[in-house]
Amino acid sequence: MLGQILSRLATAVPSVIGVVIVTFMLTRLLPGDPAAYFAGLAATPQAIAEIRGKLGLDKSLPEQFIVYVGDLLSGNLGTSLSTGQPVVTEIATRLPASAELTLVALIVSAGIAIPLGVLAAVKQGSWIDHLCRVVTTAGVSLPVFFTGLLFAYVFYYLLQIAPAPTGRLDIFVSPPTHITGFYLIDSALTGNGEAFWGSLRQLALPASAMAIFSLAPLARMTRGSMLSVLGSDFIRTARASGLAPRTVVFTYAFRNAVLPVITTLGMVFSFLLGANVLVETVFAWPGIGLYAVNALITSDYAPVQGFVLTMAVLYITLNLIIDVVYGLVDPRVRLDT
């Protein structure tokens, strides 16, 4: 198993190298002159040239690339010009914020979508099947930033039951001691009830907005996959053999139907990381998406490169995990096939 994982990792190396080259080139090819931007309002051409020299942008592209790769190898992703912080620290503090939000959204979404999909398939044509259809259609047709704004307006502004959309914690609650960077986990570990409750409250709206968006693919995939499995011969045989409906549905049907659901779960996770950018903007969530967008707007190369690299590594890890989970769920799927 370990050997298989390692060989799988080895195949990821060329993609990482590719990503490094592409991000480097892309950020250089984009229009926009960071030197002119950062020289400030009243810059003279000399001032801009000075800044260009300071940023190392007066060197040739291959030279800049060598410097960049050298820095990468020593774990240095450069410094963001717009926040003034090293990109590594920024990503390390922001990634947990995004990951926490995405994971909570995914758990909420899977927690609703999978039972809903299973029930809709088992009781095809019943009210629950229609509910499933309505919910998924509504969810997928509402863009996530819109749901986010709507939620903030209704639950915060009108009903006043949600906390102010000001990020991960209320302004007057101090963050929990840093262990994992996930506020829920950190505050639970340190027994900090106030921070736990506070971050749960802050998570509620953005996570629900994202969950609603991701309900549709999960519920539909579950329903469709369950339907085809339920219609197959071995289920008929199981039923004919007099097995309890519960055993038939969960032990036989669901286990076989879950494989495409896992694939979709992986895809939805990637979707959500993308959708994060908008939700993060609406809820002032100090996540990685917001960081990348701001950097892109200001032609701030280092964070953009750092972001793309981190994401690429994240996707590769995610794919690997999904592959491993496949093998565990279904013995017919092996990593080496």
Binding site: L149, Y153, T281, F283, A284
Partner: peptide
């Protein structure tokens, strides 16, 4: 003094109108 960054203009306004900012 706390300076909090709220990127969305709508939310800045909501915070103000609700008296939170």
């Amino acid at each position: 003094v706390i300076l909090r960054i709220i990127p969305s203009a709508g939310n800045r306004r909501a915070l103000l109108e609700r008296g939170d900012a």
